Computed example of a mutant assay.
Amino acid sequence: MLDSPDALEIDDLVVRLGGRTIIDSLSLRAEPGRVTALLGPNGAGKTTLIRCCTGILTPDAGAIRIMGDDAAAACQQGRVGMMPQTTGAWSGVRPLELLRYLASLHAHPLPIEPLAERLGLHEFASTPYRRLSGGQQQAVNLAGALVGRPELVFLDEPTAGMDPHSRRSVWSLVHDLRAAGVSVLLTTHLMDEAAELADRIWIIDHGRIALSGTVEELTADGRSLEDVFLANTDSRMRP
């Protein structure tokens, strides 16, 4: 039996914006049915990478394949979900209205009510998106990323702005996605979140992969994951 293709294959990706190289000959693999974490400082290239994978940006060089297929085709077929850090597109829409609209774009969407209940959306269902708190907007964005039953979902800082209860609920949902065979690539600045969720971690800095491995491999010498991160990335702020 042939092995399943990687959920995500990125080879020698290059992205230049405004005369700067944002992604610099980057290669990465994400295994199918696993949670892959992409860690890096602000400005390291994480969000740019996700935008390339989901067709928002066109790279200058390199190749991206999703589950063995062309990335653009996989996205067009509805096999990919994306939860962005922020979005201004939903300013006046209410959460359940948005979910119903997004569900209508897919042939076999998840049932709206159980998904909304799982993420606590009913508590603010009558509030326009622009008036939601940051954590509430993140919950809506997450629901939108999942409603189409994606095979691969990109979660860009999925718990940013969430309180500890909501954060743990998202962790539980990510575990359930993994158990259901959904591939997840997430970015986060929270080392405990990466350690809790990720099967494999890739650390990116200045648009290049600095290090990768499982949490156990990266911390085998007794250092914490945060110490490993700090040792392999540069600060954008100066003391």
Results as ranks from 00 to 15, higher is better:
A71T: 10
A72H: 06
Q76H: 15
G78P: 01
V80K: 08
M82W: 12
M83P: 06
M83G: 07
Q85T: 06
T86G: 11
T87S: 14
A89E: 15
W90A: 11
S91P: 08
G92E: 12
G92L: 12
V93Q: 09
P95I: 05
L96F: 02
L98G: 05
L98V: 10
L102T: 10
A103F: 03
H108F: 09
L110Q: 12
P111K: 00
P111I: 00
E113P: 05
P114C: 07
P114G: 01
L115P: 00
L115M: 00
R118D: 00
R118W: 00
G120H: 03
G120I: 00
L121F: 03
H122R: 06
H122V: 01
H122Y: 06
E123R: 07
E123C: 04
F124K: 00
F124C: 00
A125K: 03
A125D: 06
A125I: 08
S126W: 02
P128L: 08
Y129W: 01
R130S: 12
S133A: 01
G134K: 01
Q136D: 06
Q137E: 03
Q137H: 02
Q138H: 00
Q138D: 01
A139P: 03
L142I: 08
L142N: 03
A145Q: 04
L146D: 10
G148S: 04
R149P: 06
R149Y: 09
E151L: 14
E151W: 09
E151R: 14
L152V: 13
L152T: 08
F154Y: 10
L155H: 12
D156T: 10
P158N: 08
T159E: 04
T159D: 07
A160V: 03
A160S: 11
D163I: 13
P164E: 15
S166N: 15
S166H: 13
R168Y: 14
S169R: 15
S169C: 15
V170E: 07
L173D: 13
V174T: 09
V174F: 07
H175P: 14
L177T: 13
A179Q: 14
A180R: 11
G181A: 09
G181S: 08
V182P: 02
S183R: 03
V184E: 06
L185R: 00
T187S: 15
T187E: 09
T187F: 13
H189E: 05
M191R: 03
M191E: 09
E193G: 05
E196H: 15
L197Q: 06
A198Y: 03
A198N: 02
D199H: 10
D199F: 10
R200A: 13
W202M: 14
I203M: 08
I203Q: 02
D205P: 02
G207M: 05
R208L: 05
A210F: 02
A210R: 05
A210N: 05
L211W: 04
S212N: 07
T214K: 09
